[in-house]
C-alpha cells in the first residue's frame, strides 16, 4: 500500500508542522501577536462559519472569482482560437498582446476601481485581465500543436472549417485548456482578493484587510485558510471534469495530441 503510506506521511507532516507552530507560539519562542496559534485560527474559522458571518464575504468573493474565471477563460479561448487560426491577425496583434501581458496586473486595480467602482465589477475586471492571458496562451499553443497529419486527414475526409474546429482543434487543445483552467482558478482568486484588499466593502480580501488593520493576525490567517480550502475544492472539481472529458488520453502520454 504505497498510496496509504504517502497519505500517512502527508498527514503526519501537516500535523507535525501545526504542533510545532502551536508549541513555539505557546512557549513564547515566536511571538503569538505576529504569528498567532493554529488552535486560535481553527477556532476563528469555526466561529466564522458557526455564526455565519463569513458567508456574505465568501459569497461575494465566489461570485467575483467565478465571473472572472468564466469570462476570462471564455475570452481567452475565443481569442486564442482566433489568433491561432488567423496567422495574419496574430502577426499584427503579437506586440500588443505581449505589451498588455507585460503590465503587472495589480497596478490596474486602482484604475478599475475608478472605472467600475468599489463593487463586484472592478474585481471581476482585475481577475479577467489575469485569467485571460493564461487561457489565451494555452489555447493558442494547443491549436498550434495540432498534428498536421490528423488535420490533413480530416480535411480529406470532407471536414469543413466548422467541423475542424469542433472535432479537431478544440479537442486537441483541450488538454492545454484544462491545464490552463487549473492555473486560472488561482489567478481568478488573486484578482478577486487583491481587488477587495485594495478597496471594497465585502469579500474575503476585505475581511483580511480589516483584520490586518487592527493587527489581528489570527483573522488574517483564518482568511487565508478559508481561501486555500476554497481554491483546493475548485481545483478538485476541475480535475474531475478533466478526467471525464479526456478519457481518450493514454496514461503514459500526458497532454499530447499526435
Amino acid at each position: 500500500m504505497r498510496g496509504l503510506r504517502v497519505r500517512l506521511w502527508q498527514a503526519g507532516l501537516l500535523l507535525g508542522f501545526l504542533l510545532l507552530w502551536e508549541w513555539a507560539s505557546r512557549t513564547g519562542r515566536i511571538d503569538p501577536f505576529f504569528f498567532s496559534l493554529p488552535s486560535a485560527i481553527a477556532q476563528r474559522v469555526w466561529r466564522w462559519f458557526a455564526t455565519g458571518e463569513v458567508y456574505p464575504h465568501l459569497y461575494i468573493t465566489t461570485v467575483e472569482m467565478l465571473l472572472a474565471f468564466a469570462l476570462g477563460t471564455l475570452l481567452g479561448v475565443v481569442f486564442g482560437l482566433w489568433l491561432a487560426l488567423a496567422p495574419a491577425v496574430a502577426a499584427v496583434l503579437d506586440p500588443y498582446v505581449k505589451a498588455l501581458n507585460a503590465i503587472p496586473r495589480v497596478v490596474l486595480a486602482p484604475i478599475f476601481t475608478l472605472w467600475f467602482g468599489l463593487g463586484v465589477l472592478s474585481k471581476v475586471a482585475l481577475g479577467v485581465t489575469l485569467v485571460f492571458f493564461v487561457a489565451f496562451f494555452n489555447t493558442y499553443q494547443g491549436v498550434k500543436e495540432v498534428s498536421p497529419l490528423v488535420l490533413q486527414n480530416a480535411r480529406l475526409l470532407g471536414a469543413k472549417p466548422s467541423h475542424l474546429l469542433r472535432h479537431v482543434y478544440l479537442p486537441a487543445a483541450a488538454s492545454w485548456i484544462f491545464s490552463s483552467l487549473r492555473t486560472s482558478i488561482g489567478f481568478a482568486v488573486i484578482g478577486a482578493v487583491v481587488g477587495e484588499y485594495l478597496g471594497s466593502a465585502a469579500g474575503l480580501g476585505y475581511l483580511i484587510a480589516q483584520a490586518e488593520g487592527v493587527f489581528d493576525t489570527t483573522g488574517v490567517f483564518a482568511g487565508m485558510v478559508v481561501l486555500m480550502a476554497f481554491v483546493l475544492a475548485l481545483d478538485a472539481l476541475v480535475g474531475t471534469v478533466e478526467r471525464r472529458l479526456l478519457v481518450w488520453r493514454s496514461k503514459e502520454r500526458e497532454g499530447g495530441s499526435a
Binding site: 498534428s147 497529419l149 490528423v150 490533413q152 486527414n153 480530416a154 480529406l156 475526409l157 470532407g158 471536414a159 469543413k160 467541423h163 472535432h167 479537431v168 479537442p171 486537441a172 483541450a174 479526456l246 481518450w248 488520453r249 495530441s257 499526435a258
Partner: peptide, 24 residues
C-alpha cells in the same frame, strides 16, 4: 488517403472515428 502514420483522431472512439466522414 491512407497515410503511413496513424491519422485517426485520438480523442474519438473507433466507432466515432469511422462515423466522422459521414457526419462531415
Amino acid at each position: 488517403y491512407l497515410f503511413q502514420q496513424d491519422a485517426i483522431l485520438p480523442w474519438k472512439t473507433a466507432l466515432d472515428n469511422v462515423a466522422l466522414p459521414l457526419v462531415f
